[in-house]
Computed example of a mutant assay.
Amino acid sequence: MYLKSIHLRQFRNYKQQQVDFTAAKTILVGNNAQGKSNLLEAVELLATLRSHRMARDRDLIQDGEVASQINATLQRQTGVTDLTLTLRRNGRRTVALNSENLRRQMDFLGVLNAVQFSSLDLELVRGGPENRRNWLDTLLIQLEPIYAFILQQYNQVLRQRNAFLKQNQDSALSTQDSELALWDAQLATTGTRVIRRRDRALQRLAPIAQAWHASISGSTEILQINYVPSVALEQNHPEQIQQAFLEKIQLRAIAELRQGTTLVGPHRDEVELTINQTPARQYGSQGQQRTLVLALKLAELQLIEEVVGEPPLLLLDDVLAELDPSRQNQLLDAIQDRFQTLITTTHLGSFDSQWLNSSQILFVKAGEISSAPAF
C-alpha cells in the first residue's frame, strides 16, 4: 500500500497543510515541537483510530476551532481509496471512505495499515503492563478490525460492573446477588473474546520477533514472549476460558466488593518479555532493551504484511536518535523500499547518501511543511 497524499485541516499545529508523497521514503526534518510527530500521528489515527499519545480528541484540534479533519488518498492493490476522519471538540467523530460517511467506525479500520515506532515505545519494555496491553491491542485492531468492537464491548461491561461494585461497596451485598451475577457472566463472555484473540496474535508474532531478535543480537540472546492472562489459559476453548473466568471472579468476589473494582479480566493481563530467561525490564543495558523493541516492531510489520497481503506503512518518530549506528543500520537495511516509510529527525546525519538520494526530504517549521529548508 502507498499513501499518495494527506491533507490536514486545523489538526494539532497545522491550519491547512497538503503533503504529496513522491518516494517510498519520506524524511521530515525540523527542530523539536514544529509538527513532525503531529503528521505521523495523523497517519496513525487513520490506521487505528487511536493515538499512541493517548490524547483526547479535543487536544488534537487547533485552539479556537470546533473540528479538525484528516484526509488522505491511499493506493492499494485493489485501487485508490479516499479516507476522511473528522474530529470534533464534543468528542463525536465521523469517518468516510470515498466521500461516503460510514455508520460504523469499525468499517474504516483495516483500509490503511501502519506500524508506529517512536521513542515512547521503549516504555514497552521499561513501563507497566498497560503499555504492553495497548501495544498488543493496537496491533490486533489492524490484524482483525472487528477486535476494536470486541474490546469496546469488554470495556463497556467493565465500566458498568465497576460502577455497580462501587455503588454497593459499603452495602451488605451478597456475592450471590443476581445483578452482580449478570455482570459476571457478561464480563466472562466479552473478556474471553479478548483473551483468545490476544493469545492467538502473540502466538503468531512471537516466532517472528524471536527471529528478528536473533538476527539483530547476533544470536547471542534468546527472546521469549509469553501472554499471561489473569485467567488461566490451559486451552483456547471459549467455554473452558469462560468457566475459569467465572471461577476466578468467585475467588476474588469479597476483595472486589471491598475495593469496589474488578480485579479479574483482560484489563489485568500481562505480556511477559524475557531475554535469556530474565525479565527484559531488569535485563542488561538500554541498548539490549532497544534491540527487543526493534525486533517487536519489525515483527509487527512482517505479521501485518502476512495477514493483510500488502506491506503496511512504517512511521519512525525520532527513533534513529535512540538507536546506536549498528541498530540504525539493521533497521534501515530491513526497510529498504519494502515499506513506505515516514521518518522524523532533527538532522540528516544518520542517513547515508544512498538513503538521502532515494528519499523525499521535507522540512517542517511551525506547522508548515515545504520541500526547501525554512530559514
Rank of each mutant, 00 (worst) to 15 (best):
L46S: 03
L46Q: 04
A47G: 09
T48P: 03
L49N: 05
S51Q: 01
H52Q: 13
R53A: 01
M54S: 12
R56L: 11
D57H: 04
I61H: 01
D63K: 11
E65L: 13
E65I: 10
A67E: 14
S68A: 15
I70D: 00
N71A: 12
N71T: 14
T73W: 09
T73C: 14
R76P: 00
R76G: 09
T78Y: 09
G79H: 03
G79V: 03
V80A: 06
T81Q: 15
D82A: 09
L85M: 08
L87E: 00
R88I: 01
R88D: 03
R89K: 13
N90P: 02
G91V: 04
R92C: 08
R93S: 07
T94V: 08
V95T: 15
A96M: 01
L97D: 05
E100H: 11
E100T: 12
N101F: 09
L102T: 07
L102F: 08
R104E: 12
Q105L: 13
Q105M: 13
M106R: 15
G110S: 06
V111F: 06
L112A: 04
N113S: 15
A114P: 00
A114W: 01
S119C: 02
L120Y: 09
L124T: 06
L124S: 06
R126Y: 07
G128T: 07
G128D: 15
P129K: 08
N131M: 12
N131V: 14
R132I: 02
N134F: 11
W135Q: 01
L139G: 02
I141M: 10
Q142I: 03
L143I: 02
E144W: 07
I146P: 05
A148P: 00
A148G: 09
I150C: 07
